[in-house]
Design a protein around this nucleic acid. Structure first.
Lengths: 190, 190
DNA sequence: GGGGGAAGTTGATGTAGGTTAAGTTTTTTG
DNA sequence: CAAAAAACTTAACCTACATCAACTTCCCCC
């Protein structure tokens, strides 16, 4: 059953009756994105939250020197969206690309709001999810201000051990905020 | 009436009946913090969300070299807490200090949860609040990865024009991630 | 209102990490 | 499976920003 992962993800925070589960899963749309293809690009208006069931997404921005900066990765069991664009419904700044063939479940903004009305527990669920993201984002900000690149890399290894062997080095380098060249030097110093 | 500001803050996202307003304001505790005094220090467990009605708070961490890093400022009409500690109820990493005499309204974690039960609209309110914080935090992350210190300073001036003339330079320097010395040089170059 | 301790400035020097470039290895895809 | 592209490495050189130190100005608080 393709909904096991997402229902378990939700069950971590709220309990759904079988009926509610059916309402919820009925709102989902499943989709496969091939390697190097995009779910969303810079300038698009984000109309869905995506939940990854297989593969891996990355969300990144491109600066005025055409350098990419990874904001987040989404391996299985993670949610991904351009939050700014999703909540404002204005053109976003994020590119969301599949690093390998990736299976996702899409929840449209319309259905998400419908869910808040029909099953208010989902307000709670997404509040908690957002709170956790905020804490992680703030911790990463603090790390960026107070740690060396080497310490940030060590943290990344500890926090996301499964991703280390899956992601290309240049993507990890971009996430922690260094060039691939410097990342390579850092790694050889140990 | 000392609750006007906070009720208007809430009215931006949800509508409360007079009864609900009374329930809510009845849960608040007001407090004054003198200049250079702390609402919370590193290692404390955060038990309240604070809403500033007058003055200004700053939240910062201290790294292993005893350097302070400002995570956020809270002028009037802003909420402040150590989110990590508040949601996990584990010792936090944030110091929250008053930059001048500051009036706040405190909502305890217990009352906040009570509010979610008694007036579910508050789930919605805090979800939206948290979403907006997340978007701001992510934008700051991206700025840190892709802009020079000078560009970050210009952004800060645009985004928080009222804070520029209120905050000591060294606090702004810390927020944008440079030393006071470099901040001074940056400013003299224009 | 004046003295003392922060806050801010300025200059000389140091360094983490960037840039450019060239070469090697791995992966992808026709 | 081969060729092309992408990922990774190494080295020389560069720069944005940090550090240290001495000085000046501001602004609390007694």
């Amino acid at each position: 059953m393709p909904y096991t992962l997402i229902l378990n993800n939700i069950a971590k925070h709220i309990h759904l009756t079988p009926d509610e589960q059916a309402v919820f899963t009925g709102m989902l749309q499943s989709r496969t994105i091939k390697r190097k293809q995009f779910l969303l690009t810079d300038g698009d208006i984000c109309k869905h939250s995506a939940f990854v069931t297989q593969g891996c997404l990355r969300g990144y921005t491109v600066d005025k020197n055409a350098i990419e900066h990874v904001l987040s990765f989404a391996p299985p069991d993670w949610w991904m969206a351009d939050m700014y664009s999703l909540i404002s419904q204005k053109p976003g700044i994020l590119n969301i690309e599949a690093l390998e063939e990736t299976h996702i479940l899409l929840l449209s903004k319309h259905n998400q709001e419908e869910l808040y009305k029909q099953i208010p527990k989902f307000e709670h669920f997404f509040r908690v999810l957002t709170e956790n993201s905020l804490v992680a984002s703030q911790q990463r900000l603090i790390d960026g201000l107070s740690l060396t690149a080497e310490d940030r890399y060590n943290n990344f290894c500890k926090r996301y051990p499964t991703l280390i062997n899956v992601l290309p080095h240049k993507q990890i380098a971009s996430y922690i905020g260094v060039t691939p060249e410097f990342f390579s030097r850092m790694r050889s110093r140990k």
